[in-house]
């Protein structure tokens, strides 16, 4: 299978005044198309930073990053925004829906920035919400939805531009165990349909549902379990 993500020698160093703080040290990482990967690690292990770099929210200090055959190392801010829009779908712990928008409008948001015509936006967003079982909640605002429902809306939003990769940052961190299971089942099902998923978690039961677990410690990958 083709590599979705190839990272070679990725480093990230923060400069705090005179002090250089290395957060990622020469990380090499490959994720294949259609994989289902969990990144685990203690707080401060660098897993969030790695996640941000994979998600093009942040840049590595050095190293090579190829996503779906595109070298992202040299892209400018607009280029990264483009990649986030077209290649990556985010699912966050805090859902991160816009509170003033309805579920439907929230799902339509990435398509606005992809310049999809309004009629097609409506159709795709409605389809996406129906697929995850929220077809009767299109006009509800986030405050009128349960946590699980909000996370489903967020997943629909992540999927609506047909991304190469879905990045989930502690997707069940704000949910009770029953709802967590439902969300994990949904992600598993999406992966079975071919979506490449990488999730960051510190919850071993969540990680156990994925096909591969990458452990991080002090800015390096210490163990990759297949």
């Amino acid at each position: 299978m083709a590599n979705m993500i190839s990272m070679e020698g990725i480093t990230k160093t923060y400069h705090l005044g005179e002090l250089d703080v290395p957060v990622l040290k020469e990380v090499d990482l490959s994720i294949e198309d259609g994989e289902y990967v969990a990144i685990m690690g203690a707080s401060g292990s660098g897993k969030s930073t790695l996640m941000n770099i994979i998600g093009c929210l942040d840049r590595s200090t050095s190293g090579l990053y190829i996503l779906d055959g595109r070298n992202l190392t040299t892209l400018d801010d607009d280029g990264l925004a483009d990649i986030r829009n077209q290649y990556i779908g985010f699912v966050f712990q805090q859902f991160n829906l816009l509170p003033r928008l309805t579920a439907l409008e929230n799902v339509m948001l990435p398509m606005i920035y992809a310049d999809v015509p309004r009629s097609q936006r409506l159709k795709s967003a409605t389809d996406a919400l129906e697929k995850i079982g929220l077809g009767d909640r299109l006009k509800n605002r986030p405050s009128q939805l349960s946590g699980g429902q909000q996370q489903r809306v967020a997943i629909a939003r992540a999927l609506v531009n047909h991304p190469a990769l879905v990045l989930a940052d502690e997707p069940t961190g704000a949910l009770d165990s029953q709802t967590s299971r439902e969300i994990m089942n949904l992600l598993t099902e999406l992966n079975q349909q071919g979506t490449t998923i990488a999730l960051v978690t510190h919850d071993a039961t969540v990680a156990a549902q994925t096909k591969r677990i990458i452990h991080m410690q002090d800015g390096v990958i210490v163990e990759a379990v297949n």
């Binding site: 929210l57 607009d78 986030r84 816009l98 948001l109 920035y113």
Partner: peptide, 9 residues
């Protein structure tokens, strides 16, 4: 959020 889903500066 808008930037995460692809809004440019």
């Amino acid at each position: 959020i808008r930037k995460a889903v692809g809004a440019t500066s």
